[in-house]
Design a protein around this nucleic acid. Structure first.
Lengths: 130, 130
DNA sequence: GTGGCTGCAAAATGTTTGCACGGAT
DNA sequence: ATCCGTGCAAACATTTTGCAGCCAC
Protein backbone atom coordinates (compact mmCIF):
# COMPACT_ATOMS: atom_id res chain seq x y z
CA UNK A 1 0.00 0.00 0.00
CA UNK A 2 1.11 3.52 -0.65
CA UNK A 3 1.81 6.39 1.71
CA UNK A 4 3.95 5.37 4.59
CA UNK A 5 4.35 7.98 7.25
CA UNK A 6 8.10 8.48 7.27
CA UNK A 7 9.99 11.16 9.16
CA UNK A 8 11.35 12.48 5.87
CA UNK A 9 7.89 12.91 4.37
CA UNK A 10 6.64 14.71 7.46
CA UNK A 11 9.70 16.95 7.37
CA UNK A 12 9.13 17.91 3.76
CA UNK A 13 5.47 18.66 4.35
CA UNK A 14 6.12 20.66 7.51
CA UNK A 15 8.95 22.58 5.91
CA UNK A 16 6.90 23.59 2.89
CA UNK A 17 4.05 24.60 5.19
CA UNK A 18 6.40 26.74 7.25
CA UNK A 19 8.02 28.54 4.31
CA UNK A 20 5.71 31.10 2.82
CA UNK A 21 8.14 32.45 0.23
CA UNK A 22 7.49 29.98 -2.60
CA UNK A 23 10.78 28.11 -2.12
CA UNK A 24 12.28 25.81 -4.71
CA UNK A 25 13.37 22.25 -4.03
CA UNK A 26 16.88 23.30 -3.17
CA UNK A 27 15.79 25.84 -0.56
CA UNK A 28 13.48 23.30 1.01
CA UNK A 29 16.30 20.77 1.03
CA UNK A 30 18.67 23.25 2.68
CA UNK A 31 16.16 24.08 5.38
CA UNK A 32 15.72 20.39 6.18
CA UNK A 33 19.39 19.45 6.06
CA UNK A 34 20.25 22.14 8.58
CA UNK A 35 18.60 20.04 11.29
CA UNK A 36 18.70 16.64 9.61
CA UNK A 37 22.00 16.27 7.77
CA UNK A 38 21.25 12.69 6.73
CA UNK A 39 18.29 13.50 4.52
CA UNK A 40 18.97 13.16 0.81
CA UNK A 41 17.95 15.63 -1.87
CA UNK A 42 16.46 12.83 -3.95
CA UNK A 43 14.10 12.07 -1.08
CA UNK A 44 13.09 15.71 -0.90
CA UNK A 45 12.30 15.70 -4.63
CA UNK A 46 10.42 12.41 -4.37
CA UNK A 47 8.29 13.67 -1.50
CA UNK A 48 7.66 17.08 -3.03
CA UNK A 49 6.31 15.39 -6.14
CA UNK A 50 4.28 12.90 -4.13
CA UNK A 51 2.75 15.52 -1.85
CA UNK A 52 1.95 17.70 -4.86
CA UNK A 53 0.25 14.76 -6.57
CA UNK A 54 -1.80 14.15 -3.45
CA UNK A 55 -2.75 17.81 -3.33
CA UNK A 56 -1.20 18.47 0.05
CA UNK A 57 1.09 21.10 -1.45
CA UNK A 58 1.24 22.69 -4.88
CA UNK A 59 3.99 22.75 -7.48
CA UNK A 60 4.29 26.14 -9.12
CA UNK A 61 5.98 26.23 -12.49
CA UNK A 62 7.51 29.60 -13.31
CA UNK A 63 8.88 30.88 -16.57
CA UNK A 64 12.39 31.16 -15.22
CA UNK A 65 14.40 28.90 -13.01
CA UNK A 66 13.43 25.95 -10.88
CA UNK A 67 9.91 24.96 -9.90
CA UNK A 68 8.63 26.45 -6.66
CA UNK A 69 6.42 24.84 -4.05
CA UNK A 70 3.48 26.43 -2.34
CA UNK A 71 1.86 25.62 1.00
CA UNK A 72 -1.32 27.21 -0.34
CA UNK A 73 -3.39 24.73 -2.29
CA UNK A 74 -6.31 26.98 -3.09
CA UNK A 75 -6.63 28.49 -6.53
CA UNK A 76 -4.68 31.71 -6.89
CA UNK A 77 -2.37 33.34 -9.39
CA UNK A 78 1.23 34.38 -9.00
CA UNK A 79 3.26 37.44 -9.85
CA UNK A 80 6.97 37.03 -10.59
CA UNK A 81 9.37 39.97 -10.24
CA UNK A 82 11.85 39.93 -13.10
CA UNK A 83 14.35 41.92 -11.00
CA UNK A 84 14.62 39.86 -7.85
CA UNK A 85 12.95 36.68 -9.07
CA UNK A 86 10.66 36.51 -6.07
CA UNK A 87 7.19 35.06 -6.45
CA UNK A 88 4.20 36.82 -4.94
CA UNK A 89 0.62 35.77 -4.48
CA UNK A 90 -1.69 37.82 -6.65
CA UNK A 91 -4.40 39.37 -4.49
CA UNK A 92 -7.83 37.89 -4.98
CA UNK A 93 -9.43 39.43 -8.03
CA UNK A 94 -6.21 40.93 -9.37
CA UNK A 95 -6.74 39.04 -12.59
CA UNK A 96 -9.90 37.55 -13.99
CA UNK A 97 -9.80 35.04 -16.80
CA UNK A 98 -12.79 34.02 -18.88
CA UNK A 99 -12.80 31.01 -21.15
CA UNK A 100 -15.20 31.36 -24.06
CA UNK A 101 -15.14 27.69 -24.95
CA UNK A 102 -13.96 28.59 -28.42
CA UNK A 103 -10.96 26.27 -28.33
CA UNK A 104 -11.40 24.25 -31.50
CA UNK A 105 -12.22 20.98 -29.75
CA UNK A 106 -9.44 21.26 -27.20
CA UNK A 107 -10.65 20.47 -23.66
CA UNK A 108 -9.21 22.92 -21.17
CA UNK A 109 -8.69 21.27 -17.80
CA UNK A 110 -6.37 23.76 -16.15
CA UNK A 111 -5.31 27.35 -16.64
CA UNK A 112 -1.89 28.53 -15.64
CA UNK A 113 -1.37 32.26 -15.29
CA UNK A 114 1.80 34.12 -14.41
CA UNK A 115 1.97 37.87 -14.08
CA UNK A 116 5.51 39.07 -14.81
CA UNK A 117 6.63 42.52 -13.71
CA UNK A 118 8.35 44.48 -10.99
CA UNK A 119 7.66 44.27 -7.29
CA UNK A 120 7.39 47.34 -5.04
CA UNK A 121 10.82 46.74 -3.47
CA UNK A 122 12.60 46.61 -6.81
CA UNK A 123 10.74 49.62 -8.13
CA UNK A 124 12.04 51.62 -5.15
CA UNK A 125 15.60 50.43 -5.80
CA UNK A 126 15.42 51.31 -9.47
CA UNK A 127 14.31 54.85 -8.71
CA UNK A 128 17.03 55.54 -6.18
CA UNK A 129 19.62 53.98 -8.45
CA UNK A 130 19.77 57.02 -10.77
CA UNK B 1 28.68 46.40 -33.15
CA UNK B 2 26.11 43.73 -32.63
CA UNK B 3 24.17 41.64 -35.08
CA UNK B 4 26.34 40.17 -37.77
CA UNK B 5 24.51 38.41 -40.50
CA UNK B 6 25.97 34.94 -40.26
CA UNK B 7 24.79 31.91 -42.18
CA UNK B 8 24.02 30.21 -38.87
CA UNK B 9 21.81 33.04 -37.68
CA UNK B 10 19.89 33.09 -40.95
CA UNK B 11 19.47 29.32 -40.75
CA UNK B 12 18.05 29.45 -37.25
CA UNK B 13 15.62 32.22 -38.15
CA UNK B 14 14.48 30.54 -41.37
CA UNK B 15 14.10 27.19 -39.66
CA UNK B 16 11.95 28.58 -36.86
CA UNK B 17 9.85 30.43 -39.41
CA UNK B 18 9.34 27.26 -41.41
CA UNK B 19 8.35 25.06 -38.46
CA UNK B 20 4.86 25.84 -37.27
CA UNK B 21 4.69 23.17 -34.60
CA UNK B 22 6.25 25.06 -31.70
CA UNK B 23 9.55 23.15 -31.82
CA UNK B 24 12.06 23.10 -28.99
CA UNK B 25 15.75 23.93 -29.41
CA UNK B 26 16.65 20.32 -30.08
CA UNK B 27 14.12 19.90 -32.88
CA UNK B 28 15.32 23.12 -34.50
CA UNK B 29 18.90 21.94 -34.17
CA UNK B 30 18.06 18.58 -35.77
CA UNK B 31 16.33 20.24 -38.67
CA UNK B 32 19.36 22.42 -39.29
CA UNK B 33 21.97 19.72 -38.86
CA UNK B 34 20.29 17.53 -41.45
CA UNK B 35 21.53 19.90 -44.16
CA UNK B 36 24.38 21.57 -42.29
CA UNK B 37 26.18 18.99 -40.18
CA UNK B 38 28.80 21.43 -39.03
CA UNK B 39 26.45 23.71 -37.08
CA UNK B 40 26.76 23.43 -33.31
CA UNK B 41 23.91 23.19 -30.88
CA UNK B 42 25.42 25.97 -28.77
CA UNK B 43 25.15 28.29 -31.75
CA UNK B 44 21.52 27.33 -32.20
CA UNK B 45 20.82 28.17 -28.54
CA UNK B 46 22.75 31.43 -28.77
CA UNK B 47 20.86 32.54 -31.86
CA UNK B 48 17.48 31.42 -30.56
CA UNK B 49 18.00 33.57 -27.50
CA UNK B 50 19.30 36.50 -29.50
CA UNK B 51 16.47 36.41 -32.02
CA UNK B 52 13.94 36.12 -29.21
CA UNK B 53 15.47 39.14 -27.47
CA UNK B 54 15.24 41.10 -30.69
CA UNK B 55 11.63 40.07 -31.08
CA UNK B 56 12.11 38.24 -34.37
CA UNK B 57 10.84 35.03 -32.84
CA UNK B 58 9.26 34.21 -29.50
CA UNK B 59 10.36 31.93 -26.72
CA UNK B 60 7.46 30.02 -25.24
CA UNK B 61 7.92 28.66 -21.75
CA UNK B 62 5.72 25.67 -21.02
CA UNK B 63 5.02 23.97 -17.75
CA UNK B 64 6.64 20.73 -18.83
CA UNK B 65 9.80 20.04 -20.76
CA UNK B 66 12.03 22.29 -22.82
CA UNK B 67 11.20 25.78 -23.99
CA UNK B 68 9.53 26.01 -27.39
CA UNK B 69 10.04 28.64 -30.05
CA UNK B 70 7.34 30.33 -32.07
CA UNK B 71 7.53 32.00 -35.47
CA UNK B 72 4.46 34.00 -34.43
CA UNK B 73 5.42 37.12 -32.51
CA UNK B 74 1.94 38.54 -32.07
CA UNK B 75 0.19 38.17 -28.73
CA UNK B 76 -1.65 34.87 -28.43
CA UNK B 77 -2.12 32.17 -25.85
CA UNK B 78 -1.18 28.52 -26.03
CA UNK B 79 -2.88 25.27 -25.18
CA UNK B 80 -0.74 22.29 -24.14
CA UNK B 81 -2.05 18.75 -24.47
CA UNK B 82 -1.02 16.74 -21.44
CA UNK B 83 -1.32 13.49 -23.42
CA UNK B 84 0.85 14.16 -26.46
CA UNK B 85 2.65 17.24 -25.20
CA UNK B 86 1.93 19.20 -28.35
CA UNK B 87 1.39 22.93 -28.14
CA UNK B 88 -1.50 24.56 -29.97
CA UNK B 89 -2.33 28.17 -30.64
CA UNK B 90 -5.41 29.22 -28.73
CA UNK B 91 -7.94 30.69 -31.15
CA UNK B 92 -8.40 34.42 -30.83
CA UNK B 93 -10.78 35.16 -27.99
CA UNK B 94 -10.55 31.67 -26.49
CA UNK B 95 -9.47 33.22 -23.22
CA UNK B 96 -9.91 36.76 -22.01
CA UNK B 97 -7.96 38.07 -19.08
CA UNK B 98 -8.76 41.26 -17.22
CA UNK B 99 -6.36 42.92 -14.84
CA UNK B 100 -8.07 44.95 -12.17
CA UNK B 101 -4.93 46.80 -11.11
CA UNK B 102 -5.37 45.49 -7.60
CA UNK B 103 -1.87 44.06 -7.36
CA UNK B 104 -0.59 45.61 -4.16
CA UNK B 105 1.95 47.87 -5.83
CA UNK B 106 3.30 45.22 -8.16
CA UNK B 107 3.66 46.48 -11.76
CA UNK B 108 2.43 43.87 -14.21
CA UNK B 109 4.35 44.11 -17.48
CA UNK B 110 3.52 40.77 -19.05
CA UNK B 111 0.91 38.07 -18.65
CA UNK B 112 1.65 34.46 -19.48
CA UNK B 113 -1.26 32.10 -19.92
CA UNK B 114 -1.14 28.39 -20.63
CA UNK B 115 -4.26 26.32 -21.09
CA UNK B 116 -3.58 22.71 -20.16
CA UNK B 117 -5.89 19.97 -21.30
CA UNK B 118 -6.53 17.37 -23.98
CA UNK B 119 -6.37 17.94 -27.71
CA UNK B 120 -8.99 16.54 -30.13
CA UNK B 121 -6.64 13.83 -31.42
CA UNK B 122 -5.90 12.48 -27.96
CA UNK B 123 -9.55 12.63 -26.93
CA UNK B 124 -10.38 10.39 -29.88
CA UNK B 125 -7.67 7.93 -28.94
CA UNK B 126 -8.81 7.78 -25.33
CA UNK B 127 -12.38 6.94 -26.35
CA UNK B 128 -11.40 4.14 -28.72
CA UNK B 129 -8.97 2.73 -26.19
CA UNK B 130 -11.70 1.12 -24.05
C1' DG C 1 42.33 44.11 -39.38
C1' DT C 2 39.31 43.31 -35.57
C1' DG C 3 35.79 42.06 -32.70
C1' DG C 4 31.71 39.52 -32.80
C1' DC C 5 30.49 34.65 -33.94
C1' DT C 6 31.38 29.84 -34.17
C1' DG C 7 32.49 24.91 -32.92
C1' DC C 8 33.74 22.01 -29.57
C1' DA C 9 33.78 20.29 -25.12
C1' DA C 10 33.07 20.99 -20.56
C1' DA C 11 30.33 22.87 -16.95
C1' DA C 12 26.21 24.31 -14.89
C1' DT C 13 21.52 23.67 -13.53
C1' DG C 14 17.58 21.12 -12.15
C1' DT C 15 15.62 16.71 -11.66
C1' DT C 16 15.13 11.64 -11.94
C1' DT C 17 16.61 6.88 -11.39
C1' DG C 18 19.06 2.24 -10.13
C1' DC C 19 20.22 -0.28 -6.45
C1' DA C 20 21.02 -2.26 -1.99
C1' DC C 21 19.75 -1.44 2.62
C1' DG C 22 16.62 -0.02 6.40
C1' DG C 23 12.39 0.96 8.72
C1' DA C 24 7.08 1.44 8.95
C1' DT C 25 3.39 -1.39 8.80
C1' DA D 1 8.19 -10.56 7.31
C1' DT D 2 6.96 -7.63 3.78
C1' DC D 3 7.95 -4.15 0.53
C1' DC D 4 7.78 0.84 0.39
C1' DG D 5 10.95 4.51 1.21
C1' DT D 6 15.57 6.04 1.73
C1' DG D 7 20.55 7.42 0.80
C1' DC D 8 23.92 7.61 -2.32
C1' DA D 9 25.78 8.28 -6.69
C1' DA D 10 25.23 8.26 -11.22
C1' DA D 11 22.37 9.39 -15.11
C1' DC D 12 19.55 12.49 -17.39
C1' DA D 13 17.69 16.69 -19.78
C1' DT D 14 18.30 21.22 -20.94
C1' DT D 15 21.01 25.18 -21.34
C1' DT D 16 25.14 28.01 -20.74
C1' DT D 17 30.01 29.02 -20.96
C1' DG D 18 35.32 29.11 -21.80
C1' DC D 19 38.33 29.32 -25.28
C1' DA D 20 40.89 29.35 -29.60
C1' DG D 21 40.23 30.12 -34.24
C1' DC D 22 37.29 32.17 -38.01
C1' DC D 23 34.77 35.29 -40.91
C1' DA D 24 31.55 39.26 -41.81
C1' DC D 25 32.19 43.79 -41.63
Amino acid sequence: MNNRNTIQRQLVLETVRSMHSHPDADQIYSAIVKDHPHVSKATVYRNLNLLAEQGQIKKVNVSEGADRFDFRTDKHHHMRCRECGRLWDAPDGAANITLTGNTGGFSVEDVRIELVGTCPDCKRNKNSEV
